[in-house]
Design a protein around this nucleic acid. Structure first.
Lengths: 224, 224
DNA sequence: AGAATAGTGTCTGTCAGACAGTATCGC
DNA sequence: GCGATACTGTCTGACAGACACTATTCT
């Protein structure tokens, strides 16, 4: 057991978002052991200095071990701290957010997790463990702000390599929880994201006009 | 000594900014002991779970003990982490920023600090200890962004209770490092900050037209 | 033809920067 | 009067939301 009057617990929690049935959802796990047994919580775990290169590595390792998933892109949200937020003692939780297609997380449920499921991100309608309700709200706010203000291309993490602009727009709309004007959205992409390449000749067909397919340029990375 | 293969060091660093001679400066301390002896660094210290209510309290306590100053407003910037950033071992540093008039920090230099001084925030022209160069850059970016995008009233922390709009503007300019158009600045304040009250009858005199004095409404707090 | 979606053109209101003009003080 | 600063009015260009219009496909 930790002596948390000398050393705080250092934890990492991850708000992993995805689009399920056109709605933004967040992955929660039902705790199979330890404090807050049976309660739903953001997946998280304890920093292990002997194997983690930094907190981001901790987040990746935890997500790999708890829900068998590789996270490509992670961003820090906030640090939550105090003596009472975790019954094990004084703790610091570093919260991250990530985006991933939900069908990559149908993986095996490992030892420490009883169940996992996707909940409405804006309104999880679940009692959550620890202070995870506030954490989720903070992560959602940061994520929406990032997409709305800085980087409308972040939802590419939820799309296949080749995508149409309408798909990207629908994904943004699901995350923001509101409709976006098509013309305005495309104007913005044209101006801010020259790294989106139209794939000449490649279109997506359907019972309507064919839609131009796009791809992110090699070496494309997301703005800070 | 810590066993940092089991427990990481949890540190808090503070980028304390002020305006000195119309320029944005940051408070650095010259380390009097421990690692990076004699190097200049952001003031910081180790979390003490037995006395700190949370990380913000740690920041306040550290600033009180190292540079004898009470910080009214603190905001989190980012967590820096890894095994090599501090020679004492695996560490997590929580970085905060704050604004305070520089003349409140002429206080006694306490035990652990050799000297303290104010350096050009955008270009400290000093070798800095640990990864504090990157930390300072991150804090400055967040601070500027906060003032430019969200809350132009944050520099009130650097001004007396009663102030003129020109004083507020000059302070913003010093922080942002660029001039601001007067008319645009006042339009923005009128729209976004109804909490600034004109003090009827109270003006600041000089060899020019008298300037209206303002005060922040009671209970005014800064936007998140 | 009709439904559905792709993609574009245009109008309008908002807002920020630029700049000038007027007002009011001390000297 | 002159210098200096306070404060306001107006122009203009950028841009986002709203909306409509045409184009292209499938059924």
């Amino acid at each position: 057991m930790n002596n948390t009057t000398l050393f705080p617990l250092v934890l990492v929690d991850v708000a992993l978002f995805s689009i399920v049935e056109d709605h933004l959802r967040v992955l929660l796990v039902q705790r199979a052991q330890g404090p807050e047994h049976h309660r739903w919580a953001l997946p998280g775990g304890i920093l292990k200095p002997e194997i983690d290169a930094n907190l981001e590595s901790t987040a990746r390792r935890v997500m790999r071990s708890k829900v068998s998933v590789e996270i490509p892109h992670l961003e820090q949200v906030h640090a939550f701290s105090g003596p009472d937020r975790d019954p094990r003692g004084w703790s610091v939780s570093l919260l991250y957010w990530a985006l991933l297609p939900y069908d990559q997380v149908n993986a095996l449920v490992k030892a420490k997790v009883e169940k996992l499921d996707w909940f409405d991100a804006a309104n999880p309608s679940q009692e959550m463990a620890f202070d995870h309700h506030a954490q989720l709200a903070a992560a959602l706010q940061i994520l929406r702000n990032r997409i709305q203000v800085t980087s409308p291309a972040l939802p590419l993490h939820l799309l296949p390599e080749k995508f149409t602009l309408t798909e990207l727009q629908k994904t943004c709309e699901a995350i923001l929880g509101r409709p976006i004007d098509k013309a305005a959205f495309r104007r913005r992409l044209k101006k801010e994201l020259p790294d989106l390449m139209a794939l000449t000749g490649e279109v997506q067909r359907g019972s309507h006009a064919p839609a131009q397919l796009y791809r992110a340029r090699d070496g494309f990375s997301f703005n800070v």
